[in-house]
Amino acid sequence: MPSHVSLIAALALSGSAPVAAQPQVVDDVPAVTLRAPTPLPPEAGTPTGPSATAGATAGAGAGAGTIASYDAVGYASWYGDGLEGQPTASGAPFANARITAAHRALPLGSHAEVTSLDTGRTILVRITDRGPAVAGREIDLSTGAARLLGVADRPLAAVRVRSMTPSLADAAALDRGEAASPRLDTPDAVLRALRRQLPAVTPATRPPPPRATPMAAPSPRPGQGLLVQVAAFSSEPRAIEVARSFGGEVEPAGAIWRVRVGPFATLAEAQRTRDAAVARGYGDASILLQPSGAR
């Protein structure tokens, strides 16, 4: 690269005087371009989507596909209370303390880095489930992942989600239920640029406010269980997707499909599941008595 002195000399020889320096406005917020996700086949976004898809590359040592171009900002919620041991879309039982997440498009078994746009902290998660079921949310974190990221004290958090191929050691750590190696925090300047690209929070994205008055708890008879009705949908595929995410069942009722979970032997168990449903955006979730004769 020519030096500053040689550049001035060259301009002098050419007969052109150096142009006076113009004042410049310094903006310390860098331009950050998020990569558009690679188009996926329709089945990639279903609750039972494959572990790898066309347009995905195999993760080194991860044993699953990774969408190499996925990079998006949005809002993360978290889930887990009352769902311990319930089957996930990947087939593995849900483990609340593990560092996992639910996503609509990333292949099951793949990995992603999730960055808090408030603190810059970044963690590595494994995608084991489909979700979020609420429109306008980017990813659902397990409680363990939310705590590791430092967002378990709020219902929604602004995040960046990037697909990536983990090292063998990091993939093995997540498989054992441990956290991957620490990531470098994202600089404040980059966080500001990313926050500028966040979508607006809509009523559908925002968690519902708590009920003004507590619900009256049903009183089951001996041997009678309790059910949690998560929500009712006019779309059967949507109901099936939500039911799978909760480990529940779909019950048709005329032109609607009800998602119900249970039965539960105790009110405390049913209440935990209902609270988890409310935390995930289903503010009308309710506890019901199991119909007589039902199993």
Rank of each mutant, 00 (worst) to 15 (best):
A97C: 00
Y79H: 06
G144N: 02
G120T: 09
V250K: 07
F233R: 04
L191F: 07
I127G: 02
D170G: 07
A56T: 10
A157W: 03
T205S: 12
Q224K: 08
V5R: 14
S90F: 00
R272N: 12
P47A: 10
W257E: 03
I127R: 01
E269L: 12
A135R: 12
A216F: 00
V29A: 10
R98H: 14
P209N: 09
A276P: 01
A44N: 03
Q86M: 13
G262Q: 05
P207T: 05
T46S: 01
M1Y: 11
P199M: 12
E43M: 11
P187Q: 05
G49P: 01
S3G: 15
E251C: 00
G80K: 05
R272K: 14
L124M: 12
E138P: 00
V32A: 11
L227R: 09
N96T: 15
V29G: 07
I256F: 09
S69G: 12
R238G: 00
L198G: 08
G223D: 07
D175K: 10
L13A: 15
A189E: 14
W78H: 13
V134L: 10
P182E: 13
L267M: 15
I99T: 08
V5Q: 12
A95Y: 00
I8V: 14
D28A: 07
P39H: 10
A158F: 05
A133H: 07
L149H: 04
V29S: 07
V190M: 09
G120C: 08
A10T: 11
A265P: 00
R196T: 11
I67S: 05
A52F: 01
R154I: 08
A95R: 13
F246Y: 13
P207S: 00
A158E: 12
G247L: 09
A231V: 10
Q22H: 08
A243R: 05
G59R: 02
A200G: 03
A265Q: 09
W257H: 14
R211E: 14
L198M: 10
S181Q: 14
E249Q: 12
R137I: 02
T266R: 13
G144V: 04
G262W: 03
P107Q: 01
